[in-house]
Amino acid sequence: MADTPTIEATADHPAEHAPLPGRARRRGRPPVGRYALRLVVIAYLFLLVAWPLYLVAQNTFKDGFDDLSAILDDPDTVHALRLTLTIAVTSVIINTVFGVGISFLLVRYRFPGKRLLNAVLDVPLSVSPIVVGLALILVYGGRDGWFGPTLEDAGLQVIFATPGMILATTFIALPLMIREVVPVLEEVGDEQEQAARSLGANAVQTFRRITLPAIKWGVVYGVVLSLARALGEFGAVKVVSGNVSGDTRTATLVVEEKYLNFDRGGAYATAFLLALVAVACIVVVSLIRPKDPKEKR
């Protein structure tokens, strides 16, 4: 190991080198400042994230498991939870396939309009979801949308039905996969792919055997983030769903409905379930992810 060149070390583990100047700077600072800084961060996260989320959980279990079992016994709420799950999983699958594809295109190829494409990909993050919903109705609306009547004649209703909700959710979560995968693809580089090609692998074999394992963790994070985002989508879905209880009402819409109807217990219980799934995803991934950055890829 003595002859491991330094070039390799910097290329593989930039993280090991990056904190050095920071560490040196911190050593010179009096500990009081460091503790104060930590306290501010902890207080900030506590007041903004931890405490409100905890209160949701506390309100859910105020009467033991009564509220939870009540919503799980209500067929309309169960239908909403199922619908949310269907929409989320479908949109994550679509986003994974297209997200990885687009990332590959962005990183490995040069083509005119690449910068424009890159900028357009951030639009879903910057545009309000409710605008997305309205825009989708203008295109796919069954009565006077641009493309909707054609689809409806062919027997496919998009707006006020599951396809429209999947479309809206996919749109909203589109950049998350790409923003996770692009930096990983860039860091891995294309030498391994070239080596695989020279050893006789075709494009599909190279992607499956070499590229995909190399970007695995980027994709897993992308899936988790998209899933969490898709489960929680509210605005765009509210516009395109029609919000019919037991039919096109998703879990987030149930939360709003119950809250407005003074069924606080039911609202908190449903909200708790939504948050639980999202947090569970993130926790599971951080547990199974290899600890050593060296093993990451």
Binding site: E191, Q192, Q194, A195, S198, P213, R297
Partner: peptide, 20 residues
Amino acid sequence: LPPQKRNVGFVFQHYAAFKH
């Protein structure tokens, strides 16, 4: 011909090892 049909062995400066 694409590289996979040329039957050449290629060795890179930075090894291009399949890390996984």
